[in-house]
Design a protein around this nucleic acid. Structure first.
Lengths: 227, 227
DNA sequence: TTCATAGTTCGATCATAATCGAACCATCGA
DNA sequence: TCGATGGTTCGATTATGATCGAACTATGAA
């Protein structure tokens, strides 16, 4: 009979392999249907449905009905951040799945972290923005500077349109492979979307890998120089 | 048959109520014996022993034999950080234990986060150090500046002695109650120890609460002004 | 030695929750 | 209206793991 936050509930939700598989799949940022998640987790649709109900009840997942489909997604950035954090600890403690395939280096280089860019390139982007003074600490939180807003505009985005009282504009997110922060929040999401729109990269189907084209990577390096 | 980090193992370890209680107890930063942890979790010594073996095997806990006692502690700062992160999400999602007692406000004000100061005062300390330029971003990581080293020396600590290649000197840690970062790492630990030594505060037995004396809090406010 | 305390290991029991077949509900297309 | 597809709910089965008594090991004290 203690008080305080109960981490056992969260742990139990994530601790089931089928649910962990679903959550990992949702880290791709794409909303998936119950059937897709069932296939991803290797269970039938019935069991997937009960798992999803539990995840939703626990606040880890939210669903959006669309016709006769139900699309499931992570509830918010916080959930993505926690999962990324757990992945980081799992890697450091050696808790890896059986087969570490050829995708692994690609994952370390560039992948989506729920809805923003992670991996080496994600970290580079974040560092580059900070070093050039586009992001600054504002009383403990991360803020976009005036110069940063100009940069974002030049990049083809409207910084004012990104502001949303319910969501942080810029938020650091700890990267599991690099052990460094990359950029989350509305700006992180928008920058990744813009990178897709510019044709610099696209998602590898069914994985978290972000494939940059040769020209796209060169353009990325020019836009976000390492130093 | 996927690759990548397996968060289910971690989740399952944390997802058991008895183990979650033990881990929460160890967030106090004190090393505890198996018997103490058994009492804390409300199970017999036998079951506690099996739980602790699992936690150790999973890399969340390490043990140190001392005579016929075995002292258990969290394996490292990373584990503490993850648990703090889970507590934060648990609070935001409303996963609280039954009774939220009178200790709660005290916990929000000042508590230990494994081995460093968290809560409002922890956040204030961190912000104060950063605003005065004592901590700065060094290529994505947090570094102690020259001015910061002077400050630390004035505070009665030897900054050079704190450097340890195996451990970060300064690391941000997300605070569950304030949703802002406070200071972890070797410096965070040392500062809290120094605060104890100075007699400004002491640990409330059996809880994570850090009790500041009236004079201690005044001295803390003077040393780490809010602005 | 001998006894006491701290902790582990084993084995049996028990509770929980994951699983899936089957039936049911909802939406879409024709 | 009717079938087809996507999803949920129900019930029975099953597997996993938490639990503790009992026996055992290890350290310390007398």
């Amino acid at each position: 009979m203690k008080d305080g936050p109960d981490i056992a509930l969260l742990g139990a939700l994530i601790g089931n392999p089928a649910r962990a598989n679903m959550l990992t799949a949702l880290m791709s940022g794409k909303a998936l249907t119950a059937s897709e998640l069932a296939a991803e987790a290797g269970v039938t649709l019935q069991t997937a449905s009960t798992h999803l109900a539990k995840l939703e009840h626990g606040g880890l997942v939210r669903q959006r009905k669309q016709g006769r489909h139900r699309y499931f997604a992570l509830a918010d950035d916080d959930v993505g951040g926690l999962l990324e954090g757990m992945m980081g600890l799992a890697v450091r403690k050696g808790h890896l799945r059986a087969r570490t395939g050829p995708r692994d280096p690609a994952l370390r280089k560039a992948r989506v972290c729920y809805n923003h860019l992670a991996g080496e390139l994600g970290v580079r982007l974040f560092d580059s923005l900070r070093r050039r003074g586009f992001l600054a600490d504002d009383d403990g939180a991360l803020a976009l500077t005036a110069a940063g807003a100009d940069f974002v505009r030049d990049f083809g985005l409207d910084p004012d349109a990104l502001r949303d009282p319910r969501r942080a504009l810029c938020r650091p997110c700890l990267d599991w492979s690099a052990r460094r922060s990359h950029l989350a929040g509305a700006l992180g999401t928008a920058l990744l979307d813009r990178i897709y729109d510019l044709g610099w990269a696209r998602r590898q189907e069914g994985t978290r890998v972000v494939d940059f084209t040769r020209r796209g990577e060169a353009a990325f390096n020019a836009a976000f120089p390492a130093d």
